[in-house]
């Protein structure tokens, strides 16, 4: 039963990717059921809400997209990986993030990044920025949006829920920035997970595969 389900779900993913120009997540009842079974009704609701968020904000202005996404995820708890996952430096998928109702700065940034990508924001305008949070004296990550390549970016952060231009965020010292797709895939490889090679859909396939993997392998626990 399990194997058949996985195969069916993956097949559907595969079909959708090749039909839509803008790849995205596909949620179906099966997914929600799994989440509910594993994480509870609230978790399932949160995931459904995320689905709605993406569906409803498809054609609003970019500023609105940024706002909605930032606000949606900032509701979740900020917890470090060791406490939350019992692992150091675990990069959760958005579904895991939502289902468990919390994550660290990378999880926030990643989730927002994927959501904005799903809403059609081009990857060249987004950066995952490694920063130092001066007030807390700790390493931190934020999502930066560049309207033009030379512009001062807007910062989407979970420490400060407002979206502000970077020059107004004197509490953050920027260190280094990365392209989101490349970083995710490199991280996956670093963690020893198999990564799809090549192609623009590599990222989405990988993400979806991971999401299904997580949901299915942990089912019997």
């Amino acid at each position: 039963m399990r194997v058949v389900n996985v195969v069916r779900t993956l097949f559907v993913f595969w079909v959708v990717f090749h039909l839509s120009a803008k790849a995205t997540f596909l949620f179906n009842e099966a997914l929600f059921q799994k989440v509910q079974v594993r994480f509870g009704v609230d978790a399932s609701k949160r995931v459904r809400d995320w689905q709605h968020l993406i569906a409803q904000n498809d054609d609003v202005s970019t500023a609105d997209k940024l706002y909605e996404v930032n606000q949606f995820f900032n509701r979740l708890y900020f917890v470090d990986d060791l406490t939350h996952w019992n692992k150091n430096d675990y990069w959760a998928t958005p579904v895991e993030f939502l289902a468990t109702n919390g994550g660290d700065c990378e999880d926030f940034s990643i989730a927002k990044y994927f959501s904005l990508r799903a809403l059609g924001v081009p990857t060249e305008k987004l950066r995952l920025m490694y920063v130092k949070a001066l007030r807390y004296n700790m390493a931190h990550m934020v999502l930066a949006y560049y309207e033009t390549p030379n512009a001062i970016p807007l910062v989407l952060d979970n420490l400060n829920p407002d979206i502000l231009p970077a020059n107004q965020r004197r509490d953050l010292q920027p260190v280094y920035s990365f392209n989101g797709d490349g970083l995710w895939l490199a991280k996956e490889q670093g963690q020893g997970k198999q990564v799809q090679k090549g192609g623009n859909n590599g990222l989405w396939e990988d993400l979806n595969k991971r999401m299904m993997q997580e949901l299915n392998t942990n089912e019997d626990k």
Binding site: M129, A144, N150, P153, A166, S177
Partner: peptide, 9 residues
């Protein structure tokens, strides 16, 4: 890789 000067690329 991108070199950033502060926040700007």
């Amino acid at each position: 890789t991108e070199i950033n000067d502060g926040w700007t690329i």
